[in-house]
Simulated scan of single mutants.
Amino acid sequence: MARNAFYSFHYVPDNWRASQVRNMGVVEGNRPVSDNDWEAVKRGGEAAIKKWIDGQLYGRSVVVVLIGANTAGRKWINYEIEKGWSDRKGVLGIHVHNLKDSGGDQSYKGNNPFNDFTLGSTKLSSIVKTYDPPFTTSTSVYKHINDNVADWIEQAIEIRGQY
């Protein structure tokens, strides 16, 4: 079954890394937003941003949080996680710090953004799977994500169905 993914990520430092994952072609993803489009959405204020995110999430099967150095705790990423979960979508995280950016640089591993959420007394991070490719070279990290992301997505959807 073809899955449609919504990719959540910290734009400025991780957009290049995110585009690598989004362009793998393994799953269908949301259309990239240009800098100009995003600036126009932001000028509309919080209500406009929420409306845009909600529209982007509509019809998606899963929220894939691409975790960079500073992803955890960001307001709109938190909103995307919360909205995806409450809309009964699969949710998962993939650490992308070892993918190179446009300058050829890697980053450092960021915190798990799911640690900031609880279901009753259970941390969401104990339910939602987060994957950290076990490689340090960008090409190996890319291959690992490419080889596994479809299975990770199916597992996230299955896990969400249990809660």
Rank of each mutant, 00 (worst) to 15 (best):
K51D: 15
V63L: 14
V149H: 08
G110W: 03
I53R: 08
I94P: 03
E28C: 14
K109E: 06
S19T: 07
G104R: 04
N115C: 11
A40Y: 05
P133R: 13
S121C: 13
G93R: 05
A40L: 09
I77K: 01
S61A: 13
K129T: 15
P32F: 07
Y11K: 11
F6K: 07
G84M: 09
G161L: 13
K42V: 12
G29R: 06
G161C: 10
T139F: 13
N148H: 09
D105E: 14
R160S: 03
R17W: 04
Q162C: 10
D147S: 03
F6I: 06
H97I: 04
H10W: 04
W52I: 05
Y108E: 15
W85Y: 00
K89F: 05
I77S: 11
A150S: 09
I159N: 02
N30E: 07
R17Y: 01
K89Y: 04
K50R: 15
A72C: 03
D147W: 01
H95T: 06
L119I: 14
T130E: 10
G44A: 10
I145M: 06
N23D: 00
V27T: 01
Q155T: 08
K89P: 04
Y7P: 02
S102Y: 10
G59I: 11
Y11M: 11
I145F: 02
R60L: 01
Y11V: 06
N78W: 00
A156Q: 11
D105R: 11
Y11P: 00
V62H: 04
K50N: 14
W16L: 08
V128I: 01
H144Y: 07
E46Q: 15
S121W: 08
A156P: 02
F117I: 12
A72G: 01
A156N: 02
G44Q: 15
N146H: 10
S102M: 14
S34T: 02
A47Y: 10
Q155A: 10
N111L: 13
I49C: 15
R43H: 10
S121I: 14
V128K: 00
P32M: 05
A156T: 04
P32T: 08
G68C: 07
L99Y: 05
A150C: 12
Q20G: 08
S34K: 10
Y131G: 07
M24P: 02
A150I: 13
V149T: 02
F6Q: 03
W76C: 03
Y142S: 04
P134A: 14
A69K: 04
S102I: 09
W52P: 01
A69E: 15
P113H: 14
N115F: 11
L66V: 08
G68H: 01
W16H: 04
M1F: 06
W152D: 03
S19R: 07
T118I: 10
K129Y: 05
K129L: 12
A150Q: 08
I77H: 07
F117T: 12
D132W: 06
A47L: 10
K129C: 12
I157R: 00
T122V: 10
W38K: 00
E39H: 14
Q106L: 01
R17T: 01
